[in-house]
């Protein structure tokens, strides 16, 4: 477990910025509520076994008591570095993203399952989209009952979405909560 170096930090923050935009500030400056400390600390990023965790500072302090080999995980895993040292967000960060997301799309109940099996969201499945979404913006995908289902990239801007065919892709799939079942071992 160690803090991220500069290169890694930029990679992580850039990735997060794609989804939460200017809310990234809130995400980093957020005050922690867990723990018994009278003075609640903030949150920070930690790298452990090629995975990046979003952890409260008090938890980090306590985690130092455990040796590196024995420590499985701590806080919330938000992503991992691949072998070629590229950063990838994983589905466990969904809660964090959903709370701060700037751009959202909602899928129709009929298209929910398809997305949860790892498919892209088509125009026919699109129920609602945030106004003024640019192309290739990171978006959080919600069900109609406002449950976050996953996240991805907007394949088209909101304006272009109007003219799309029902079979065209609106959102490129990146991760969804179906992965908790499908990729249980990897997580």
């Amino acid at each position: 477990m160690r803090p991220l170096d500069e290169d890694e930090t930029t990679q992580v923050l850039e990735k997060l910025h794609k989804f939460v935009g200017s809310n990234l500030k809130h995400l980093i400056e957020r005050q922690a509520t867990e723990g018994l400390d009278s003075k609640p600390g903030g949150y920070c990023f930690r790298l452990h076994k090629q995975r990046v965790y979003y952890v409260s500072e008090s938890l980090v302090r306590r985690a130092t008591n455990i040796s590196r080999e024995k420590l499985c995980a701590l806080g919330t895993c938000i992503g991992k570095f691949t072998k070629s040292s590229k950063f990838k967000l994983v589905v466990t960060c969904l809660d964090l993203l959903a709370a701060h997301a700037k751009y959202k799309i909602w899928v129709k109940p009929s298209a929910e399952m398809s997305f949860l099996y790892g498919n892209h969201v088509l125009k026919s499945g699109l129920a609602r989209i945030t106004d003024n979404t640019p192309q290739y913006q990171g978006v959080v995908v919600y069900s109609m009952s406002d449950i976050p289902l996953g996240f991805g990239l907007a394949a088209k801007s909101t304006q272009d979405c109007r003219k799309l065919d029902p079979t065209d892709i609106v959102t490129l799939h990146q991760s969804d909560i179906g992965e908790y079942l499908r990729m249980e071992d990897e997580l």
Binding site: I129, T130, D131
Partner: peptide
């Protein structure tokens, strides 16, 4: 405006 064009696309006017 958005309400009247709902059938074109349902848009969430977050900024407004």
């Amino acid at each position: 405006i958005v309400k009247n064009n709902m059938d074109a696309l349902n848009i969430d006017l977050r900024e407004f």
